[in-house]
């Protein structure tokens, strides 16, 4: 799980996908590609984005759901909790 999580986060396109899904949940592949190209300058093919989504899903960071004939993607940031638990952020005492 660790390996999958860190591998998923290691790619800038996948981080941009997470940015967009956190900002607006429930996107189709089509909408996600439109946002990536106009707001991040990422012109990857839909196939490539689809593969990135699979990696993110494997790490538990994205969930996809079917509603009727359509497939929507949502971000799930809960796997990130393990990172903060492993390396807690200590606030400076000044």
């Amino acid at each position: 799980m660790d390996e999958e999580l860190f591998k998923a986060l290691a790619d800038p396109t996948r981080r941009a996908i997470l940015d967009e899904l956190v900002e607006h949940s429930g996107q189709t592949l089509f909408e996600l590609c439109a946002r990536l190209s106009t707001r991040h300058g990422i012109g990857s093919s839909r196939q490539a984005i689809s593969q990135h989504l699979e990696v993110l899903e494997g790490a538990g960071l994205v969930r996809s759901r079917r509603e009727g004939r359509f497939k929507f993607h949502d971000a799930d940031t809960s796997p990130l909790r393990a990172i903060a638990e492993r390396w807690p952020v200590i606030d400076d005492e000044r």
């Binding site: 189709t28 079917r66 497939k71």
Partner: peptide, 10 residues
């Protein structure tokens, strides 16, 4: 049609 609709492609 199914494949296009699933991915949200008009």
């Amino acid at each position: 049609k199914e494949a296009l609709a699933a991915d949200g492609i008009p």
